[in-house]
Amino acid sequence: MKGGWFKVYALAYLLFLYAPIIILPMFAFNDATVIAFPLSGFSTRWFDEMMQAPALRIALKNSLIIAVSAAVISTTLGIFAARATTRYRFPAKAGIMGLIMLPLVLPEIIVAVSLLVVLLGLGVNLSIFTVILGHVLICTPFTIAILSSAFQSLDQSLEEAAYDLGESGPSTFRLIILPLVMPGIISSLLISFTISLDEFIIAFFLAGTEPTLPVYIFSQFRFPSSVPVIMALGTVLVCLSILLLTIAEYFRRRGIAKSGGKDTGGFL
């Protein structure tokens, strides 16, 4: 049967996609410094070592501050843009939206160097703050994509009905729109948090002396002896991302179900 071959191919493809993620915990729990087969035994020592690395702790703190700020700011910007594009028509909409969504396809290194040049030119010191600026830029297109679908499934007459029943603009937003798009907002916060937490190049260029987690990880790749700890860290990060994404997907779907829409598929 035709579908059968497709299924075999699909499963092989999934194996290809998941190969690194499957191998990751093998080395994280492997009792050897060298990252190679065969494996030499089970150990949790790399996790213990990970807990004790001070530089990692600093990088983690930086990354969390950046990811939370980038998530909040880009989701806020995303709410404005998604609301404006789904509800109103105005001149130059396509052009403006094209610019805002550009980071989706623009190589991140271009975003990174162009921001670097401008920030240094303005005399701004590189820090966590400059990384946040860059991350907001690349997270915003994703938040807009998620929030647009949330706002799109919102029937405009719901707002009018609330308004008609005596509510003002702000109270309509609070009582009707916000509760209905809340799942989209949560999903957008989680996704942009995940993107920022994982982003390397922009942080690499803009972090100055305040490394983020990926910058720290990249720097450790140079020292073979610290790679197992990175594998342990990676395992934790992968579990965390999967958890966050599952929650995000749950809220995204609940949002669609709540406003009576139909699920049209993934995040992008």
């Binding site: 995303g78 404006a84 109103y88 028509r89 105005f90 403006i96 805002i100």
Partner: peptide
């Protein structure tokens, strides 16, 4: 309604202009 829409989009648009268009 267009004016309202444009106004609503302006924070995001402004950010993209300052942080993306100008640097490029």
């Amino acid at each position: 309604e267009g004016a309202t829409g444009l106004l609503m989009l302006s924070p995001t648009a402004l950010y993209a202009i300052l942080m993306l268009a100008a640097p490029l």
